[in-house]
Design a protein around this nucleic acid. Structure first.
Lengths: 150, 150
DNA sequence: CAATTTTTATTGCAAATGCAACATAAATGA
DNA sequence: TCATTTATGTTGCATTTGCAATAAAAATTG
């Protein structure tokens, strides 16, 4: 069995670290870019879904989003049909930063894929999707308190 | 260009989250397993190399390792030929926990690879190695304060 | 050789992270 | 219907994380 987790961990930490350093320029603190891009791409998304998407604890998401609101990148709006949820939208300021985040992410992506052929790129993308799918089931289960047996 | 960074980020956070929850049973706090496994596998490694390997800030590694020492999982030893470095070794307690970490990591790895053929597994492993290699150059450069141009 | 630069390690903040514990609205079910 | 469970969101700690700044040993350079 090939060891892929460490590679994935290294890649993820390295790129996250780079992004965090590069986005300080836009007054985004650690991790915030993750939430902001997704809110820009899916305006109206709620916190719970966002946390699930990013694979981060609900409470971490809660505070990251609070801070994005305080610093004026996003706003929360009530849902007319559901008093429990708060829909998230980018503000003008958030929309302005979005292209810079996108550009950086795209650049990192292209650096990551350097030297891979078109077919290899397609391949790794598809395989990663499968892996992510495999993994998210366990994540949701373990987060809910279930124990894995192995 | 295929978007692989998000998949990688999701997978990494999900599995890290699971590991952190599962290793609390062995009194390992967030992130510590990363260092401990590598020290067990490469006894004598120094902190700086470990941080570089894991792709984490030097100061973060410093404190994680301090804590692993305090809680008795590892020990630091002086190098006879180099007063600057401190070599890291697992203690008996550290050695005892190692197999459990290894087993958990192996299990997560197998969950991740579920449904992939032998060839696909080989493929994703090789491609991830390339990606990691691509990415670590940028990481080291940005960490040293250099600016990426894009 | 001495001066400078690089490597390795640490501490002081300030901030993010995440488990518990809680709150309330919505959904389910008997 | 109303009682119970689930979904969504928040705060209170305790902890990790990481940038600056500092220190000191080693390596490099002139």
């Amino acid at each position: 069995m090939r060891e892929i987790l460490r590679e994935i961990g290294m890649i993820a930490r390295a790129l996250d670290s780079i992004s965090n350093i590069e986005f300080k320029e836009y007054d985004l603190t650690k991790g915030q870019y993750l939430y902001l891009v997704r809110i820009c791409e899916q305006p109206g998304i709620i916190q719970e879904k966002l946390a699930e998407m990013i694979k981060v604890d609900r409470t971490t998401a809660s505070r990251a989003i609070q801070k994005l609101e305080t610093s004026g990148f996003i706003e929360k709006r009530e849902d007319l049909h559901n008093k429990k949820v708060k829909k998230l939208f980018p503000t003008a300021k958030g929309e302005q930063v979005y292209p810079f985040i996108k550009r950086e992410n795209d650049y990192s992506n292209s650096v990551a894929l350097e030297g891979l052929s078109e077919e290899e790129t397609e391949m790794i993308h598809e395989l990663l999707r499968k892996v992510r799918h495999n993994v998210e089931k366990d994540w949701e289960s373990v987060k809910k308190g279930h124990k894995r047996n192995y």
